[in-house]
Amino acid sequence: MDPLESKETYKQYVDKKSPNSPILKNCFNAFWVGGLICSIGQIIFNICKERGFDTQMSGTIVSIILIGIVAFLTGLNLFNKIGKFAGAGSLIPITGFANSIVSPAMEYKSEGHVMGIGGKMFTVAGPVLVFGISTSIVVGILYLIFNAQSITLV
């Protein structure tokens, strides 16, 4: 068989030839690390509730504390090791979002404070805000158009 017959056959050939990621192991690590991070969040949330904060504010406090911890770990050059081990387990929780802001900020410090840290801070996380905020505005406008609880489909 000639793998170079066409782009298509070459792509199939390469896919077969390239080693797969150890997906079971990765999923297992992602599961327990992700679960653990969110459970820590839940504990902080419960403490806030006990302290008398409302749900909205408790959720915000959880985010701020987790983001602060991640910024600290990233600054200590530790978070990339956690990320390498846990994959999506540390990427998907708010910790991944925080890390994706902190890491370019550190990386581009050499280009100065304004255009370096300030300008490049959102190179990875920017799209998350663009699409997240845009979607939320569309959701809000659609809600306004249908102007009723009937938008809640379920």
């Binding site: 990621s21 990320g83 890390n99 990386e107 581009y108």
Partner: peptide, 8 residues
Amino acid sequence: FPLELGNQ
């Protein structure tokens, strides 16, 4: 990506 980004 930046070095400190926790990706695999």
